[in-house]
Amino acid sequence: MKKIILALTAFSLISGLTVMAQASPQSDLKEFRSYFKKKFPSIKFDEYQNGMYALPVAADRRAEWEAIMDFPPYELSLEKGKRFWDKNKLATCFKNGGKGIAHKYPRWDKKSGEIRTLIADINSCLVKKGKKPIKNLKKGKMAQVEAYVRSMARGKRIKPDVDFSNKKALAVYEKGKQFYWARRGQLNFSCASCHVANAGKRVGGNILSAGLGHTAGFPVYRSKWGGLGTLHRRYGGCNKQVRAKPLKAQSDAYIALELYETYMSTGIPLAAPSQRF
């Protein structure tokens, strides 16, 4: 494989950019939802929490997945995450001791003037306690702790606590939206090429999930990974698939992308952690 990386040279957005540029997050959300409602009229809104298993074309894989979810392979990781959480008394940094709050992430932090992910807040809590922050933000300890916190909000409907009337917060959202719709990599695909335009289709043997609900199940356990992986680990994988350069987990661009994808999934019940192939 040639390692020519043409990330963003082929920058082009799916048409309608002018309309999009003036759109508000609220109107984007409305359009995103109604697109999928039209595309898959038989799928109930809440079902999108299950990733590609929500799709009728994945019906035959669904039974197998449900059987796995009866005895989920991530139980041990979740237990480890809880132990780390308890040992380091991380509950003291979070509202309500961290219970039932994860569906509000990413959140806008007024004080610092930043969008904060749950992972960023976990690490700054560690630092506040004089501990070392967790380095690997794609798998291992961080994925375990994050899985534990998000599991405490299972079933709560996604609702990022972000004030879009704030210009800075809105700018992060716009950046994420642009990342989502821009073509990149040698293969010249945008996220939307696969997860909007071709959701429900197959690339080779892989069914493409709908972008709606994308963040609900993360972190996910994949046999391919042999453990839990965070959302940004998946982003890296999807960037590599199109032969674009993967970015660092918790980089500004991926945080923006997480905000956009999460906001587009507003209202979907959290289903974290989950299992994927």
């Binding site: 799916i14 048409s15 309608g16 309309v19 999009m20 759109a23 984007d28 359009e31 995103f32 697109y35 595309k39 719709w181 939307a192 090429s193 909007v196 335009a197 071709n198 289709k201």
Partner: peptide, 13 residues
Amino acid sequence: MRYTAQIIAGASA
């Protein structure tokens, strides 16, 4: 968002 995607979707349908 004008989903020009639909053109592609048509072809793949």
